[in-house]
Each structure stands twice: as structure tokens, then as C-alpha cells.
């Protein structure tokens, strides 16, 4: 029943994901279509992202996903995954986001890193990450899936650019030396009410560990990881629903806050 994995198939799946993204619709999971490995999934992702770049976007950073044990258990993996952030995904801090332009968005609270130097793995440790980080900031990631009903296993989400949607980086920023990366409290509010809390330790025991994993993985794949790139280091919260009309705020202790207001097309 499974098709043989050929370059043509991988290319066709990249095209299918890109088309689904463009047309804001979902497609059937990929994992049943062929015996896809994680390596195949990253090649599909690359094809998906290259199509977005060809359509005018640029690479602005990376995101790390699947960083908590709970999500790893759900996806039956023992490591994170990554996706590539493009210029069209940026929402300004305090701005609005028209959720009718997303497919099935959900929100997460994270710590974002911005590199002050290139970080070339393999061989990168968490200390190298801290040394190379220009600043960190609070972040809200709006994940989205081009796969029907979020019915994903690891190859589905990796191929789908790690379920990248949109993201907000706070204007509040600090040196990683001035924030408790692992224990600073992360508080998520919807319309001023606390809905969930967490801390950096939820992400690979500390978000710098996740960024080191990313640097090493990118190094092995020969992908660049450059000064100025933004890294969304992984969710510190549960997945939250995204509802038009609501304002979502992420506050990180000792660092500051960022927020976004969800609108619904012309209804705003």
C-alpha cells in the first residue's frame, strides 16, 4: 500500500504542503503514504520552505518543537524537532493577528533566543549557546498544522515545517545572564486572567539545552545557523486555544511580557 520513497514523491509532498499552506486547507497525514523516515521528513520540509522562499520570504530563524516529555511520549520520539521561521510569520508585539488566515492555530508560551554569533555544530554545548546569545525575549508562538485535525506523528509535523504558524517576540529583552533560563516563571494570561503557568525547565530541562541540540542537528545536516537568527526554544505552556476577540499575553519573570490580540477578518 505504501508508495516507494523517491525524490519525486518527496517533492510532490513538499508541493502538497505548500499548496495547503497557501490555500489554508488541510491534507491527509503523510505517514501512511510511504515508509517515511525522519530524514525524508526534513527533506520534505526543506522543499516546503524553499517554495515559501521562492515566493518572496526570507529565513529569519528556527523553532524547536517537541521539547517536553509529554509531547515526546505522544509522538513516540526521544528528541525534539525543528522548523524554519520565515519573514512572513512575524507578528509585532502588541499587534493583532487575523486568525481567519490560519487553519487550526494554537498558542504556546516560550523563551526566544537571538544569536549574536554564528553557532556551528556539531560539538555545541549549552554554554556555547549562552555565549553566542545576544539576547532572550518572551515569545508567543501560534502553531498551525496543514495536517487534518492535527492528526500528527513526528514525520507529519517535521515535514510540515514543525507546524510553524506565526509568532510574536516581545520588545522586552535581556541578556541570558540576567534571566533565570530554567526557573523564571512563565505566566500566560487571556484577557488579563491567568490561564496557565510554567517555567523553562519544561523544555529539555532548560531552553539552552534545546538550542544546543538544534545547533548540533543543523550542523549535522549542513544547514546554517547565523548571527541574528531568532530561535523559538520550545513550549513552556500547555497548548492553548486561539479565539478571535481575545488578547493573549506571555509574561516571563525578570524579563517582561509580549502580547497579541486575535481578530477575525473583517470582524475586527
Amino acid at each position: 500500500m505504501s508508495a516507494p520513497v523517491t525524490p519525486e514523491l518527496l517533492n510532490a509532498l513538499s508541493e502538497e504542503l505548500f499548496a495547503a499552506w497557501q490555500q489554508q486547507r488541510t491534507i491527509a497525514p503523510l505517514r501512511n503514504r510511504a515508509e517515511l523516515t525522519l530524514d525524508h521528513a526534513y527533506r520534505i520540509q526543506q522543499g516546503f520552505v524553499e517554495r515559501r522562499l521562492a515566493a518572496g520570504e526570507t529565513i529569519v530563524g528556527k523553532k524547536i518543537g517537541v521539547t517536553s516529555k509529554a509531547v515526546q511520549d505522544l509522538l513516540e520520539v526521544r528528541q525534539p524537532d525543528f522548523g524554519q521561521l520565515t519573514s512572513g510569520m512575524v507578528v509585532p508585539d502588541g499587534g493583532t493577528l487575523d486568525v481567519s488566515k490560519m487553519i487550526q492555530p494554537k498558542a504556546e508560551a516560550e523563551l526566544a533566543f537571538v544569536l549574536g554569533e554564528d553557532l556551528v555544530g556539531p560539538g555545541i554545548t549549552a554554554v556555547d549557546v549562552i555565549n553566542a546569545t545576544a539576547w532572550v525575549a518572551p515569545c508567543i508562538e501560534l502553531v498551525d498544522s496543514r495536517i487534518q485535525g492535527w492528526d500528527i506523528k513526528i514525520v507529519d509535523t517535521v515535514a510540515d515545517n514543525a507546524s510553524c504558524g506565526m509568532y510574536v517576540i516581545g520588545e522586552a529583552k535581556a541578556s541570558p545572564l540576567d534571566v533565570d533560563l530554567n526557573l523564571a516563571g512563565t505566566v500566560v494570561k487571556v484577557d488579563g486572567e491567568v490561564v496557565t503557568t510554567g517555567a523553562g525547565a519544561a523544555v529539555q530541562s532548560g531552553p539552552a539545552n534545546a538550542v544546543a541540540w538544534l545547533a548540533n542537528t543543523l550542523g549535522e545536516l549542513g544547514l546554517p545557523f547565523r548571527k541574528g537568527e531568532v530561535i523559538l526554544s520550545g513550549s513552556q505552556s500547555i497548548l492553548l486555544p486561539v479565539t478571535a476577540g481575545q488578547t493573549l499575553e506571555c509574561i516571563i519573570g525578570g524579563l517582561g511580557a509580549c502580547s497579541v490580540t486575535f481578530t477575525n477578518g473583517s470582524a475586527q
Partner: peptide, 27 residues
Amino acid sequence: VDRTTLGLAMVKNGELLTTGASAAVMG
């Protein structure tokens, strides 16, 4: 301290159970 954003990691037998922040208690 910032009494609403005190972060917490709860660990059992070396494994992370959960994380949170003090705002979880009535804000």
C-alpha cells in the same frame, strides 16, 4: 522578588513532573 512570576520546577526521582509559576495561585 516578583511574587507573581516565581517559577517552579517539580521533580520526582530525578524526573521533571511539572513546571509552574506563582501566578497560578489566584494570579
